[in-house]
């Protein structure tokens, strides 16, 4: 007799435990519109980009001012800091007005396909010439498009940056 009583109480408590969970699920089913957490990604690009935090690491860019000048002296600190060989700096020699030779960058080559966004190059840069941008949509049809030259054509190093 006690076996039957035990069996029945097991059944009742089991069904009760199932209903407890069902109640929670039902609660969310009814009010799910208020707590909608799914993002409709391609449709909400505008808000998504606006809402990205400043520190979000998407890609390395070099900041240029209005005179098409940057702050990169070609010291290769970023190239040495990079764990993956993402950055290659090609240097050239410019002539200063005094007629002296001065080292400057010819090309700041950035291999986005190798980059892991570890931020070590930004930390290493003594002149804050490069920074992280928030763009994260990097899909391209041709892999060669991912190799970028960061300094703009015709740009030169800003006066006074050593």
């Amino acid at each position: 007799m006690s076996f039957i009583r035990q069996y029945l109480s097991d059944v009742i408590s089991g069904v009760k435990s199932l209903l407890t969970g069902m109640r929670l699920t039902g609660k969310y089913f009814i009010k799910h519109k208020e707590t909608n957490i799914t993002q409709q990604y391609p449709d909400n690009r505008q808000e998504l980009f606006a809402g990205l935090p400043d520190r979000f690491r998407g890609e390395v860019v070099m900041s240029h001012d209005d005179n098409n000048e940057h702050a990169c002296t070609g010291c290769t600190a970023c190239e040495l800091a990079c764990p993956n060989g993402t950055i290659k700096i090609v240097t050239k020699f410019d002539m200063t007005p005094e007629g002296k030779k001065k080292k400057a960058i010819d090309k700041f080559v950035y291999h986005l396909e190798l980059c892991t966004m570890c931020n070590l190059c930004i930390e290493a840069c003594p002149t804050s010439a490069i920074k992280m941008a928030q763009n994260f949509e990097h899909s391209v049809f041709d892999r060669r498009d991912l190799t970028k030259v960061l300094n703009k054509p015709g740009s030169k190093v800003r006066e006074g940056v050593e």
Binding site: S13, G14, V15, S17, L18, T20, G21, L24, T25
Partner: peptide, 8 residues
Amino acid sequence: ELLTGNII
């Protein structure tokens, strides 16, 4: 509520 007490 959802999982720990669930008999299954």
